[in-house]
């Protein structure tokens, strides 16, 4: 058995501790930047929704500004965003390299995408429900929490899953600034040293993470859709 593994994964077997370290870094990046992005993206998505024309906090000015900013950030390729954010990252985090330095660019890369996803999830809500809630004397804040968010849980979960999967892709790119993680690992050994088995193993691990996230999302969606 061991011989067989040695044979097909000659380069991975002697890097297991490093592989685990990379996996931890990836999970760390996903956890931190994912949860921060979730909070900010949700807030921005909600603001986009409620300030839209005809909605409860209709505000043309805020909507247009936010809409444009999100569009601008969404159109910047992540690899360029990584580089251009270096001064800001250094000012906020203290360092622009390593795993810590990758978190801010990841958030900047994820939040605009996620807020758009949230916006479209919330837009699916039947406007009749908002009317009914208003008619029952629900305040505008109550409508955000008790109607928009509560009624859109399946859509929000779907948006979260999609975003999370794309965030996994971004963390792999963060390797470019020494952000560590599985992507970095794959590039350093699999690509630069032409150790193909390393690439395969990292791809499989990433695939497993994606599948876990996806099925978790599907379970929650199924449970919350009636």
């Amino acid at each position: 058995m061991i011989e067989w593994i040695n044979e097909i994964l000659p380069n991975v077997v002697n890097k297991v501790p490093e592989l685990i370290k990379s996996l931890n870094q990836t999970l760390y990046l996903l956890g931190i930047s994912g949860s921060i992005s979730f909070v900010f993206g949700s807030i921005l998505g909600i603001i986009l929704t409620v300030t839209k024309k005809g909605n409860i906090y209709e505000n043309k000015f805020i909507y247009i500004i936010l809409d444009k900013i999100i569009n601008i950030f969404r159109s910047i390729p992540f690899i360029i965003l990584l580089a251009s954010l270096i001064p800001l990252t250094r000012a906020i985090v203290g360092t622009a390299i390593g795993t810590k330095g990758a978190i801010l660019p990841l958030i900047f890369g994820t939040v605009p995408f996620f807020s758009r996803q949230i916006e479209s999830a919330l837009a699916e809500l039947d406007s009749g429900l908002i009317e009914a809630a208003q008619a029952m004397g629900t305040s505008s804040m109550g409508i955000i929490f008790r109607v928009y968010l509560k009624e859109s849980i399946p859509g929000i979960v779907r948006a979260t899953t999609i975003t999370f999967v794309s965030l996994i892709g971004l963390t792999a790119m963060a390797g470019a600034i020494g952000g560590g993680g599985l992507g970095d690992f794959a590039i350093r050994y699999g690509h630069q040293r032409n150790q193909i088995d390393v690439t395969y193993v990292t791809v499989i691990i990433l695939l497993i993470i994606v599948m876990i996230v996806q099925s978790l999302g599907n379970i929650i969606i199924k449970k919350t859709t009636h």
Binding site: A133, K150, E151, H226
Partner: peptide, 30 residues
């Protein structure tokens, strides 16, 4: 106004029930 609206019930053509809540929770909403 929110308070006054509790004094005025309303029903609609398309019912406007909350899909994620069951019958009990819908009625308990207000």
């Amino acid at each position: 106004l929110h308070k006054a609206r509790k004094n005025i019930g309303m029903i609609f053509q398309h019912f406007n029930l909350m899909k994620s809540r069951n019958v009990f929770q819908n009625i308990a909403y207000p």
